[in-house]
Design a protein around this nucleic acid. Structure first.
Length: 571
DNA sequence: GCCGTTTTCGGCCCGACTGTTTTCAGTCG
């Protein structure tokens, strides 16, 4: 059982307890436990009861449940709950406007167990027969079911960003004096976002009318003086909150989240005799205002350094903010090189010279050309002869376009862990990025040993997109990432944060673990065209979420320094 | 269910909006 499988069961227990109307704090404990397990880079199944209980948020009972799930594949408690409710009703929970209370009543009073049965009941007007339900609620449920089928919910960070930027620009045009910006998970740089949160201060209520008139609005979900929600084309839900300027910082803090970060922050406020909400920070005794116009004001009043949004996940940032030891996070302009890109020689759209020119225009000092190797036939991968000839052409272009160039390859790690190209070929190149592009379905042990073998090959300098996940599309392959990270550290293999918008691989938690274990990281575009070089901004965002400084990422170094740090050049 | 030099018991974050209601429960973020 891997962490995600364990987390899924804990999360289902939380959902089922919620439908059962159980103790809300018990529900929170399970939900919190699921989050912890899902995000912890360590393999939970390998920890004993004592080790599990050392994790904050995991107590005696949750530790026992986790062990039970790891040992037997499930928890008896989970099975007991499932005996009370059919598992299919969990699908209903995700519907807009349908919560646990409604799900429980739909099941008890109407016998509704599935989306299809709910749709039928709503169409036949049976839902309105329930107390507190009416025709409007039925219509809303039917729309929610349609939208679920259409959109599925979440979006990639860059797509969310683009939609938000356009919406904010539209609002600013109608309220030029107001402060308007996107907050929420987008501001934290989370890899996928469920919705867009926009905050406006210094705007009058008329902005709400402009908000719902936006050309892409498909449906108004709710409208009030200070808060409105719409669904726009593309399946995004967008919320606008309007606050007064004196509350701007408090609202930014509040709506940027994360929820976990905010709970800890509020708890801290309570401990100081203060109350924090989206309007400001107040004394509990006389309700006087302590602050709220800026985020800095709030964090300082709570004895904390201002926390960059990317770190607000309750992963140790409070402690570091209190001790004033928050890292100076890497910024996009810190990148001097890009070490993973393709040309027309394999599946790229532009030539060596064109990629070099675009890199120079983007302000880079050096790049590596890393086309695919033979095994990736559909990408016209290179065999040894073509790889060496290609390398000669790269070296001939070196320095002619304003950037230094390394002749490299993205070499497939074959199913048995051997490299796709012969060692004497790889040894003649300047840099080798090793990646898995095939046999994704190997079991955990096979896949781990396969990648470990690649790391042990002295010609491998960088491990490319290490987990193979595609965000919102494909789960990472089964893999002991901790073992991979430790081996990479031991063998001085750098690990990539691949900036492709649907990869961002390593993810934030894994990249942080890698840094902690002494691995050198690189941030690369994996660009297949000139324009795609720009995606490194998302890789940098992920690196910031991993607490990385410029010093942790070796392609921030000047060319000669960087080159000396490549494994093949280490003495 | 978790947590704790104020506590091993009694806490646990907070407010807006909707639909169906005459004061509120449910949902959401």
């Amino acid at each position: 059982m891997d962490n995600l499988a364990i987390a899924r069961i804990l999360g289902e227990i939380a959902d089922l307890l919620e439908i059962k109307n159980d103790n809300p704090f018990k529900i929170r404990a399970y939900r919190n436990g699921a989050d912890i397990v899902a995000n912890d880079p360590h393999d939970m199944a390998s920890l004993d009861l004592k080790g599990l209980q050392e994790i904050p948020g995991i107590g005696k009972d949750l530790a026992a449940r986790i062990r039970e799930i790891a040992d037997t594949g499930d928890a008896a408690f989970h099975q007991e709950l499932l005996a009370e409710f059919p598992p299919s009703i969990l699908d209903l929970l995700g519907l807009q406007g349908v919560g646990p209370k409604t799900v429980a009543r739909l099941y008890r009073e109407l016998g509704v167990k599935t989306l299809e049965e709910l749709e039928e009941a709503a169409k036949e007007g049976r839902v309105r027969s329930m107390k507190g339900m009416g025709p409007k609620k039925e219509t809303l449920i039917l729309k929610a079911i349609d939208e679920r089928r259409l959109h599925g919910g979440r979006h990639l960070l860059p797509d969310t960003h683009d939609a938000a930027v356009a919406y904010v620009a539209y609002l600013k045009a109608h309220a030029p004096d107001a402060q308007i910006e996107a907050v929420g998970s987008l501001r934290r740089g989370q890899e996928s976002c469920g919705d867009i949160d926009i905050l406006a201060s210094g705007a009058d209520a008329a902005l709400m009318d402009r908000f719902i008139e936006y050309k892409l609005v498909e449906r108004v979900l709710g409208q009030g003086d200070t808060k409105s929600s719409v669904r726009i084309w593309g399946g995004f839900q967008v919320d606008l909150r309007i606050v007064s300027p004196e509350s701007r910082g408090a609202a930014m803090q509040y709506f940027t989240g994360s929820k976990a970060h905010n709970i800890v922050l509020r708890d801290r406020a309570i401990g100081l005799g203060l109350k924090l909400n989206e309007y400001g920070l107040f004394r509990v005794d006389d309700e006087s205002r302590v602050g709220g116009a800026s985020e800095q004001e709030i964090y300082e009043a709570l004895g904390l350094a201002w926390v960059p949004p990317e770190l607000r996940e309750d992963r140790g940032e409070m402690n570091a903010a209190e001790r004033r030891t928050l890292p100076t996070l890497i910024e996009h302009r810190d990148l001097r090189g890009d070490l993973h890109m393709h040309t027309t020689e394999s599946d790229g759209r532009h030539s060596i010279a064109e990629m070099a020119q675009a890199a120079h225009a983007a302000g880079l000092e050096y790049i590596a050309i890393t086309d695919h190797s033979r095994n990736l036939a559909m990408a016209n991968g290179l065999d040894e002869a073509r790889a060496l000839a290609h390398a000669a052409r790269v070296r001939a272009e070196d320095g002619r376009h304003g950037v230094r160039m390394l002749a490299g390859i993205e070499c497939d790690i074959l199913a048995d862990g051997s490299m796709d190209l012969a060692d004497d070929c790889l040894a003649q190149l300047d840099i080798v990025v090793a990646s898995v592009h095939s046999a994704f379905n190997q079991d955990r042990q096979q896949m781990t040993e396969r990648i470990l073998r690649a790391i042990e090959n002295p010609n491998v300098d960088v491990l490319g997109h290490p987990t193979g996940r595609l965000i919102l599309k494909r789960a990472p392959y089964a893999l002991d990432i901790e073992a991979i990270i430790e081996a990479a550290a031991r063998h001085h293999v750098a690990i990539e944060i691949n900036s492709q918008v649907d990869r961002l691989d390593l993810n934030d938690v894994q990249a942080r673990l890698a840094r902690d274990r002494g691995v050198r990281l690189v941030i690369s575009s994996d660009a297949h065209s000139q324009a795609a070089l720009a995606v490194t901004r998302w890789g940098v965002m992920q690196a910031r979420r991993a607490w990385l400084t410029a010093g942790d990422v070796i392609n921030t170094r000047p060319f000669d320094d960087f080159r000396a740090l490549l494994r093949r050049n280490l003495r």
